[in-house]
């Protein structure tokens, strides 16, 4: 793996963090990552992240589940094994609804959860670098990637943006 280096600085309040990010953005400094102990409302907009495609993945998988669920039951009762229940129609749509619904929910939920894990590269055994163990406690951290040895410069930029505990990390 390629050697990388990062500069980190942290804030103790989410409001200060957002102000710090804005200050860095005004100077056109690219922010590699922001790490927070809890979801900070509106942070994705400040960082201009694209809207997540997870909802779409969930919808597609749900539609697939519905089609499979209904289609399979219809196939079983009209083609594979038609059973006569007191002369009722073989294709009895209302009684297929519960299983169709459950499969819709199940498939959509799987797609959402696995989509989330895969797109975030999280999962059992994932070994992501944790720069500061206090991030999951009370620190709001900004990470800047070092290029061409501009570590010193980035550190002073972070300091002027109000960050505390500015540090250099080699990965």
């Amino acid at each position: 793996m390629q050697e990388k280096a990062f500069v980190s600085g942290y804030y103790l309040d989410d409001k200060d963090l957002v102000e710090g990010i804005r200050a860095l953005q005004e100077k056109d400094i690219e922010i590699a990552d922001v790490r927070t102990p809890f979801p900070v409302h509106g942070l994705d907009k400040v960082l201009k992240y694209r809207r997540s495609r997870l909802p779409r993945a969930g919808f597609v998988a749900g539609a697939f589940g519905a089609a499979i669920g209904f289609g399979f039951q219809a196939w079983v009762f009209t083609e594979a094994w038609p059973l006569n229940f007191g002369g009722k129609p073989f294709l009895s749509v209302p009684s297929f609804i519960p299983v169709t619904f459950e499969l819709t929910v199940l498939m959509a939920a799987f797609a959402l959860v696995f989509g989330f894990l895969i797109s975030s590269k999280l999962g059992p055994g994932a070994d992501n670098v944790i720069f500061d163990e206090e991030v999951t406690n009370d620190r709001f951290q900004i990470l800047l990637e070092v290029s061409n040895g501009n570590s010193e410069q980035l550190q002073s930029e972070l300091q002027s943006a109000g960050a505390e505990g500015v540090k250099h990390h080699d990965v």
């Binding site: 959860v113 797109s119 975030s120 070994d127």
Partner: peptide, 24 residues
């Protein structure tokens, strides 16, 4: 699962939780 608290992950986590809630 290698959780880091990254803002990207949180954004996805929030969107996933909301839709999962809608389904649940």
């Amino acid at each position: 699962f290698g959780w880091t608290g990254s803002a990207r992950h949180w954004a996805r986590h929030e969107s996933m939780s909301l839709i999962l809630a809608g389904l649940a």
